[in-house]
Simulated scan of single mutants.
Amino acid sequence: MASPRPQRGATQNAESTRFNLPQTDSDGDWLDAREAIDGAPPPLRTTVTVERPRTIISRNASPDVPFDRSINPYRGCEHGCIYCFARPSHAFHDLSPGLDFESRLFAKPDAAALLRAELARPGYVARPMALGTNTDPYQPIEREWRITRSVIEVLAETEHPLTITTKSDRVTRDLDILAPMAAKGLAAVCLSVTSLDPKIAGTVEPRAPHPERRLAAVRRLADAGVATYVSISPVIPAITDHEIEHLVERAAEAGARHVFFLPVRLPWEVAPLFRAWLDTHFPDRAGKVMATIRFIRGGRDNDPDFFTRMQGSGPWAELMRTRFQIAVRRHGLNAERIALRSDLFRPPAGAQGELF
């Protein structure tokens, strides 16, 4: 059983071999063996590397997601959520989807300038831009880097619609921009709250803000007129599924207009990391959890198929959906569709001059 690191989600730095990348070998330094010698893991510090991409808008044509474009100001995420489906993306950098993903981060300080140039291209058609689709735009390093804020400033200037998904109450820092955008029908925010139990939240998403702080952020956003969702995702069988009704209730009390949930997904390298996490933190029910997940996912750790990968299938998945729907009706949520405007968009002022 791996030793958990304080305030980290993954219990190991498992290698990825999907891209034929070389394995990382120990350099023989005595520090590599300190865990075995001292009986405790050494401190793991977060590092940030500047990334200089040539474009910043990512496109997708997935039928399972309600947006076709997104921006990710950062790669990797210090929140350390063990279930994060974005973990495997770190393997593209020859880094582990485990501890590397949450401690060796990449920042894109040119994001706003790149966005301005892309919005200025002839023929660009505005549709809602999604932030937080891969890694959290308000993870702790946003406090100093402020890349997410710079992106929102460009979107506000051009009156471009925006959606944000985050686990952080830091989003309320930008209410001075988001509230005026929301008043024009240009902004919506989704706060993710997986569990109300601080002990569970502290292991499943160790560096994310306390669940009560997130619900307080929902209240601040709603009071400021921002259309606000709560995502009860992912639901983990035998660990958080008993909280569905209470989470829906608390979301309604905080002023959310919509809620949704997704069963836990374990793509690629996430599955072995999740199993190691279960063995460390929930050894009494690890087998039950994985058996239920496989039941929901057609006998596999993960179902990659469109239309079913986000919902799950079988009696367990149907039971969760039924419980969720009853709770939603009880609290009067999801009564109306939140639609953002795209007709107000105007290209960045003077953008053509900046390109030449």
Rank of each mutant, 00 (worst) to 15 (best):
G185E: 07
F282L: 10
A227V: 03
S192H: 05
V204A: 15
E243W: 10
A256N: 12
V270F: 07
E212F: 03
E269T: 15
F282M: 06
P263V: 06
P237H: 13
E212T: 04
G255D: 00
A208Y: 09
Y229G: 05
H281F: 13
T194D: 02
E245R: 11
K199D: 11
L247K: 13
L221F: 03
P206D: 00
F274A: 02
A182G: 01
R265C: 08
A276F: 08
P234R: 09
H246A: 15
E269Q: 12
L186S: 05
P198M: 09
T228M: 02
R275M: 15
A182H: 03
D223L: 09
P267K: 14
A276R: 13
R214G: 01
H246I: 15
V204H: 10
L273Y: 08
V259D: 06
P237F: 10
A216Q: 09
R207W: 13
F260N: 02
A188E: 10
E243R: 11
H258Y: 12
P267I: 13
P272D: 07
H281D: 08
A252M: 12
A187E: 03
E269K: 14
T228W: 01
I232L: 11
R219Y: 02
P272M: 07
H246R: 11
V248D: 12
A217M: 03
K199P: 09
L273M: 13
P237N: 13
P267F: 13
I244Y: 02
H281N: 13
V226L: 05
V218W: 01
A276I: 08
L191S: 02
A187C: 14
G202A: 01
A252P: 12
